[in-house]
Nucleic acid binder design. Structure first.
Lengths: 265, 265
DNA sequence: CGACCTGTGAATATGGTGTGAACGCAGGCA
DNA sequence: TGCCTGCGTTCACACCATATTCACAGGTCG
């Protein structure tokens, strides 16, 4: 199994003895380790592409609870392990409830701390990973994760990285409606701010590029009030199949076209 | 989001005091709980569709390590929490390394045990794409939460999000009468204002769309002065059974239909 | 029969989505 | 260094799907 994959861990702690011992062992195990002795803004944590965060709330001061809760809410894919001296059952329960993944009590053996980090990362990885990326085929498209590109008729769509990752995500859940929040979470790596339209904008760019290289297919379908669904469909078919010869039907043509693409959610 | 989904947990322990306390709290929290005082074959665990397994290795005897390792290897989607009296660091590390998700030391507060089970389940669930609940089948209908849609004879009903959620709620309490206030509360997320007719209007829209795609069934029944009940019934039965061949009977057809559907409170 | 509840269609309000363009940031290049 | 370019983000506006409200007709109950 892939449990031996390297782990990227950040440690927020001032207990230099504990940290240096941990660092030594982590290095021996081939982990990537970052250290800090104070709160790190969520954005930076994102940039580090961490698997897990090991934090002693003592270094966070008064804002400890707020900070932890914020991290857990904004970075649901980050494993959070609290490692603290004394704590009450109520505190631990509260933390675990709002998103902390494990809560270790000091003094603790560094080996156990590492094992718990590993357990959290494993559990965490099992979910999103698994879908090892081979090339995907869909309609006229070929999506090649090894190139970060998609092709139609051997021509590249010239996708940017974000565009590619969005397309890749959608295509690997073919037929399933993905909510905007989910999409944002998985592609951008952190929680979507209320009112953010980035997903919509990228969907539009994707549609443009898809249309340009593969005009006779429609790939991305809008589910009003929900999100988007990837499902390659040859164009043209729609008018025949969804609107089967209703003589009395003189509704506006553009309306029909929209129906074919926008599916009430 | 849906972190409050019910958790299905199995407990393998002989400490009846601990287990009964836990059971009480679990029930209060709406969890599904199974208990056993000995090893349970992996196959049965699968059949229980568990989120997590809480186990004291003491009940497993000599085979404890083998059993645990086997469970972790064969059911990687099952959260495994060990809860034991005394243990060495080496034991904990070994367990956590080969797949145990958390290791609690007794005596422990049942609330903390539950919080840890919750944390493990949450982490575990996040991966599987939010673990939507499975498709529902009712009459000619198929209700698919992953698509936010219902289908009859492979044709979409074109439900909007609200319509879908209303139908989903009703269908998942099949046979039960739901009061308007309850419905509103669950679908809209807040309390219904006095005199609000939204539920009625949406029921009508649902009935229309159901009728359109599945005319020979009636699904939603009115309970006067109370609310609505979802119960798929083949139509036509009524005409034959309730109104058996009365030649003189020319009462309005819609009236008959309503009779069949409206049940006095 | 009268009070109240529900069904129904239409009008209106709300809010989600498509779209073009402007902005800001970073990396490449002269 | 300063310009240029590509990319991601944000904004404003138009358009339309959906949600809510309203008025009235019909049905139900005591």
């Amino acid at each position: 199994m892939n449990s031996q994959q390297t782990i990227r861990l950040a440690v927020l702690d001032t207990d230099s003895g504990f940290v240096t011992v941990l660092a030594k062992r982590a290095e021996a195990a081939g982990w990537q380790l970052r250290q800090s002795t104070g709160a790190v803004p969520p954005q930076e944590l994102v940039a580090m592409k961490l698997n897990a965060l090991l934090v002693d709330p003592a270094v966070l001061g008064d804002e400890a609870w707020n900070y932890l809760e914020r991290i857990c809410a904004e970075l649901p894919d980050l494993g959070v392990i609290v490692c603290t001296g004394r704590s009450t059952v109520a505190q631990r329960v509260r933390g675990l409830r709002f998103g902390v993944d494990d809560w270790i009590t000091k003094p603790c053996h560094p080996e156990e701390a590492m094992a718990r980090v590993e357990a959290v990362s494993r559990r965490h990885r099992r979910g999103r990973g698994d879908a090892e990326d081979g090339p995907l085929q869909a309609g006229e498209l070929e999506i090649r994760p090894d190139q970060f590109q998609a092709f139609a008729a051997a021509e590249s769509l010239d996708l940017t990285r974000r565009e590619f990752e969005l397309l890749h995500l959608l295509a690997s859940s073919k037929g399933q409606v993905l909510e905007r929040e989910t999409i944002y979470q998985r592609v951008w790596g952190y929680a979507m701010a209320h009112g953010d339209r980035s997903v919509d904008v990228f969907i539009r760019k994707l549609r443009q590029k898809l249309e340009k290289r593969s005009p006779s297919w429609s790939y991305i379908h809008t589910h009003f009030g929900v999100g988007y669904r990837f499902d390659p469909e040859p164009a043209g078919i729609v008018a025949e199949e969804i609107r089967p010869a209703a003589a009395s039907d003189f509704t506006d043509r553009s309306q029909q076209l929209h129906d074919e693409v926008t599916v009430g959610s």
